[in-house]
Design a protein around this nucleic acid. Sequence first.
DNA 1: CTTTCATGATACCTATTATGCATCAAAAAC
DNA 2: GTTTTTGATGCATAATAGGTATCATGAAAG
Lengths: 303, 303
Amino acid sequence: MKVNLRHIRYFLALADELNFRRASEFLHISQPALTRTIQDLEAGLAVRLFDRAQNFVRLTDAGRVFREGGRRVMNGLEATIDLTRRVSIGEAGALRVGYTDFAISGELPELLKQFHHKHPGITVRPHHGVTAVQLDELKDDKLDIGFVTGPVRQAGFHSRVVQTDRPICIVPEGHRLAARRSVMLADLAEEDFVHGPADAWAHFYDYLFPLCRKAGFQPNIVQEAFNSVGILGLVSCGMGITILTESTYNFATGGLVPLAITDIADAMVTEAIWASENLRMPTRHFVDFLDERARPEAWNPRT
Amino acid sequence: MKVNLRHIRYFLALADELNFRRASEFLHISQPALTRTIQDLEAGLAVRLFDRAQNFVRLTDAGRVFREGGRRVMNGLEATIDLTRRVSIGEAGALRVGYTDFAISGELPELLKQFHHKHPGITVRPHHGVTAVQLDELKDDKLDIGFVTGPVRQAGFHSRVVQTDRPICIVPEGHRLAARRSVMLADLAEEDFVHGPADAWAHFYDYLFPLCRKAGFQPNIVQEAFNSVGILGLVSCGMGITILTESTYNFATGGLVPLAITDIADAMVTEAIWASENLRMPTRHFVDFLDERARPEAWNPRT
DNA sequence: CTTTCATGATACCTATTATGCATCAAAAAC
DNA sequence: GTTTTTGATGCATAATAGGTATCATGAAAG
């Protein structure tokens, strides 16, 4: 005879009550059914679990050990079922997120923070990788969501733009260009520039500096600040001008004037991308999260 | 529908094989039975555990979680059943052993060491206590075996003598008394004594010193050694004589002469004692162990 | 392109197992 | 003594698990 969860459930009830009738009522079965189940269990284990008489029922030493173990088994199973259910509806699980340098220095940290707040049961596992590598990993189901520099127009992927980084020029109020709405790159050739942190912003400057060279100049860096807020601060007190991205300008306070740069056509786009088929639940939740997040705030329209 | 160990067993087999027919063969059931059991399980959990097609079967994310949990449950149950069985036959468990100061400074440590060697699964839990307290604890089933100073002649207890401590006088070879077989206490009134460690041997000296007083003297302590071997060493190099117990004399090397003391009638007896009814398995094993130990070595006859 | 083979699912019947009811024997309560 | 309460047992029934035959589908072989 094989031991069953039924045996354990009944045993635990009896071990708590130490009375067949009361335990059987608790279990909503008849007393004889309980008696025989306990007999079956004891026979199956070849172990006497209860000392019983008409007068009293009490656990043997072995019974006490089995009670502890039985409780652990039942609790473990309950926890397992619960976790399994949560994973199946995507309330728990892991989301493997790839990111480029550019993504991680942009919106991604905040995005992941918000996602974690909405789905605290989902563990985000970040993996660094350049765009091409991430696409391969997505195809091989080694990654759920990639944050890559786009736009990617490749079959088998869906994506949402999460960050469009159009460069703008920022000058202090009172600057000679401050009255204009827009400039061309060549207009900035003689200006002093405030520079962002070279390492974290490498992607941006790799993109920007060739454009400047094409416009015929090399930016004259006079100050370097630790982050975008620092850059904007230096600009606002007249140390120079800067070229940053739209999204970075969101952090700006007063005293600054943004100018479009008319001869830079392409924005730098960072998009969340995923393989179209067999979406895992955490991935679905992430996509839904992105869409919900986009809608009310008019953040970025869908691709 | 309720989840059963059967469901888990079948699930784990299928999770290993990822093929219904092979898994069903492994389980010695038909393939349709397995199919339906998995369906029942998935319905019971309201969770899809396998992605399946005619072509392949593979675990879902939730299935992977359930596999881990299911394995834990099965292993836990197996371990529990095993431990329960071992406890029921007394191969595992705990033995609550009481001891007096006198017992612990005598044979008890060696005895427990040998018992542990014979029954490594039984954990010995030592509790210090004087004889009267131990007897109460035995009655209240707070203790399995007591090591008490006997003889106890009380209904409801069984016992075995494990240690008879008859005091003997030990003198160095060449001493004025060395030619004799026995002495009386009064013969030792003028001797220099080597003394044992006062704390550990308190029981012994509480017993001996009144006898000396009755014989008309107070022993003249000239040296104190750390343990019995030390005492015997000091005696053998002529520092004095000593009164020890027979069992302690077993440690003696050469150069020493033991003398019976004719006017001390009562030996100090230490006995293992237990309540006669409802012996727990570890207690039985300990009693058997004592009896086996007594027989071949003619150590101490039964009470 | 058709045939064959292997897969998992379904229908239907049987064997096994669990349960309830009625009842028993023993001890405690009255 | 009688009644009540305890756990155990016998027997019939209901629920569950299992087996056989068969289907539908897709892949491989011809």
